[in-house]
């Protein structure tokens, strides 16, 4: 398997909360410099997967590599300092802190020696991306609307200039116009060289910007597609448009290897 270097790699990872494993044995790679989207029904274990990547959940088994480096033993903070950015699905900002403080915290613990100027520049870049935040820097993050909070969370993850970005439903709670804006922002970040692994439910919009798509059902990877082909696949169509019985039906584990070309 001598493909493009992987930004992220999971090898035979099992993880869960209580007695049972939510992820049974997940092996996947997200190619560097691309946007990989994970899709799957509610409760499939998508957030669990991404939390395991971020380090909030210790895997019971398996290895996790970021840019070829084994980070399995690292704490979430150490992974963040190693260049892994993460936007959780819920509780993704410090509600009792101001927006300005949230942004600052996003930067200062990763670039401990950064000067004021470097921080100001980083912040200016984020505020360019999300201009709605600019006039409210002194307001409490808890007072933001759900969508604005989503933007702030994204900004906090971006401000430190991560090399790999994990996004758990970045467009959740956004109005249709903002869904496009948010995903465009993701694409823009990606063009600047950041590899992105994201979970999305707005599949049509997500596929517009993604390169690769992975389907996760019941804690198992059901296959991976070239983004352009994903929505056309009959299995995907039944899963997202049809009934739930078919979800349980066995599927060929490896439907397709990495798409040869991407848009």
């Amino acid at each position: 398997m001598s493909e493009a270097p992987a930004a992220l790699e999971l090898v035979d990872v099992a993880a869960g909360y209580g007695a049972a494993d939510i992820l049974a044995s997940v092996t996947l790679r997200a190619a560097a410099g691309r946007i990989t989207t994970i899709a799957g029904p509610n409760g499939a274990g998508k957030s669990t997967l991404i939390k395991t990547l971020a380090g909030l959940l210790r895997p019971r088994r398996g290895r996790i590599l970021v840019g070829g480096r084994d980070v399995t033993a690292l704490s979430p903070a150490e992974r963040a300092r190693a260049g892994l950015g993460y936007v959780p699905q819920e509780r993704n900002v410090f509600r009792n802190l101001t927006i300005g403080e949230n942004l600052r915290i996003g930067h200062e613990f990763i670039h401990r020696r950064a000067s004021r100027r470097e921080f100001a520049l980083a912040r200016a870049r984020v505020l360019d991306l999300f201009p709605d935040l600019a006039p409210r820097l002194n307001g409490l993050a808890g007072a933001l609307s759900g969508g604005q909070r989503q933007m702030l969370a994204m900004g906090c993850a971006l401000i430190s200039g991560p090399s790999v970005l994990l996004l758990d439903e970045p467009s959740a709670g956004l109005s249709p116009r903002y869904v496009a804006t948010m995903l465009d922002a993701v694409a823009q970040v990606n063009r600047s060289g950041v590899s992105v692994l994201m979970i999305e439910q707005n599949l049509v919009e997500a596929m517009r910007v993604s390169h690769d798509a992975i389907l996760l059902v019941g804690g198992e990877i059901r296959g991976r597609w070239n983004a352009a082909a994903f929505l056309a696949d009959p299995e995907v169509r039944t899963l997202f448009l049809g009934g739930t019985q078919r979800v349980a039906a066995p599927a060929q584990p490896e439907r397709q290897r990495d798409g040869a070309s991407a848009a």
Binding site: Y17, G18, K51, L56, L57, R60, P76
Partner: peptide, 8 residues
């Protein structure tokens, strides 16, 4: 009681 909670 759940055995292993999330670390931290």
């Amino acid at each position: 009681q759940p055995a292993g909670a999330e670390p931290g």
